[in-house]
């Protein structure tokens, strides 16, 4: 880790915080990506759907533009296609069952001092670290 990379990463984090702050102040929404995606897809509530879809369009469109402008920001995938398919399923099921991911629990929940989010983050960080460490050792 260099000071330069730590500062860049800190700035990136601050932008994520700013984006989540806009979602809260403007729309009264928690900017958790798994929940935003799930509720946008099944549309079981309400007036919030257009706002969620607009947020997701901004997110994905920036990915499309970013892939052209800064392709290096994406790096290589670390797993084969079969492992990615399984991992995707686990991430989808796990974040829906646990009601949140790195953004909803990790950023928004911890910032609010939510006990559930502190527990969720401790658990998913622990299992992610164990999984990645075993994976790295194999």
């Amino acid at each position: 880790m260099t000071t330069e990379s730590a500062l860049r990463v800190l700035l990136g984090g601050a932008l994520i915080g700013l984006a989540a702050a806009i979602a809260l102040i403007a729309h009264g929404r928690i900017a958790g990506i798994s929940g935003t995606l799930g509720r946008a897809l099944d549309g079981d509530d309400d007036d919030g759907r257009p706002v969620r879809l607009a947020f997701l369009v901004g997110l994905v469109a920036t990915g499309v533009i970013g892939a052209q402008l800064v392709p290096g920001a994406f790096g290589a995938n670390v797993a084969g296609i079969a492992q990615l398919a399984i991992a995707g399923l686990l991430v989808g099921v796990g974040t829906t069952l646990g009601n949140g991911c790195t953004s909803g629990h990790g950023v928004c929940g911890i910032s609010r001092g939510s006990r559930r989010s502190f527990v969720a983050v401790a658990v998913f960080m622990a299992t992610a670290m164990v999984t990645a460490t075993i994976r790295g050792a194999l």
Binding site: I33, S34, L37, L56, L59, V60, T62, G63, G66, N77, V78, A79, Q83, L84, I86, A87, G88, L89, L90, V91, G92, V93, G94, T95, T96, L97, G98, N99, C101, T102, S103, H105, V119, A120, V121, V123, F124, M125, A126, T127, A128, M129, V130, T131, A132, R135
Partner: peptide, 22 residues
């Protein structure tokens, strides 16, 4: 349980939902 399952998927792939969509 959800947090445990999510962590395993994240550790296997290096992707959580936001970065994956981007």
């Amino acid at each position: 349980g959800g947090a445990m399952i999510f962590g395993v998927g994240w550790g296997l792939s290096g992707f959580c939902p936001g970065p994956a969509l981007v």
